[in-house]
Amino acid sequence: MTPLEPITVSHLHHPAGDRFGRCERQPFVEVDQLSLHYRGKPAFQDVTLSINKGCITALVGPSGCGKTSFLTCLNRLTDLIAGCRVSGRITIETLDVLAPGLDVIQLRRRIGMIFQKPNPFPLSIRKNLEFPLREHGVRDRRQIAQTIEATLRDVGLWEEVKDRLDSPALALSGGQQQRLCIARSLALAPEVLLMDEPCSALDPLSSGVVEDLIVSLRGRYTILIVTHNLAQARRIADDAAFFWVQNGVGRLIEAGIAKQIFEEPHDPLTAAYVSGMRG
């Protein structure tokens, strides 16, 4: 696989002008004919999709159409599920994600994931960020401290928690927990972020804060976000992919620039869904 850059602070520290980066529409992740079978039954089939570097790609569609399963293929979390078989091809730059001998640990460092329910570990705020870093070979105390501060600033949590870094992470509010989870992923300097409905378990106010945070990450990370909130997808997405269930199997119906998908979709199913008629 491509050798990794060591985690450094400079990697995280961007000049202020870069904060609202732009999406450049240059393919970064290529998904080809991807299918997932669970205990012999297909969950989704034949998904071919190209994801642009630095862009926010929203995956939309009704429940059960395989959007979340699709995300877990990209960082090979599917390996943990017994009876789950993935076929097809995923490449990130030149890296073959589904290759049998691949070091999944390094893969998952390059690809961060944020879950629907905030899931910080039952440790202190500091330990939540520090322990994954240490496990990935960062030993220098000063570097760790700098990374913690930089990522917490990135997610806008620094001012809120800087005086209580050693208090339990589970004592934070739901929105703060979710931002901490995002910080935990960012600390490992990933290139891709997978977000599985990151706002749906939060109250509207926290949801708005997290949404703004995601927008602020545009340009620096390639973001795939599953969301049921069409208004949110319209607000934040550069690209969009629309999934639908046909005969009990999830399929990708249409993908492209978000504005086109939401305003002049080619497929009648997409049109019906985005106008709120179906799904």
């Binding site: 960082n75 979390l77 943990l80 999944v104 640990i105 390094q106 893969l107 998952r108 460092r109 961060g112 994931m113 879950f115 329910k117 899931n119 570990f121 039952p122 322990f131 994954p132 496990e135 990935h136 989870c181 935990r184 992923s185 490992l188 997978l194």
Partner: peptide, 21 residues
Amino acid sequence: DNYRLSAAALGLSRTATLVHL
């Protein structure tokens, strides 16, 4: 289970997940 999932998503080894979490 979400501890196991999020640990795996962070690319932690099984030993680390076991010992720390």
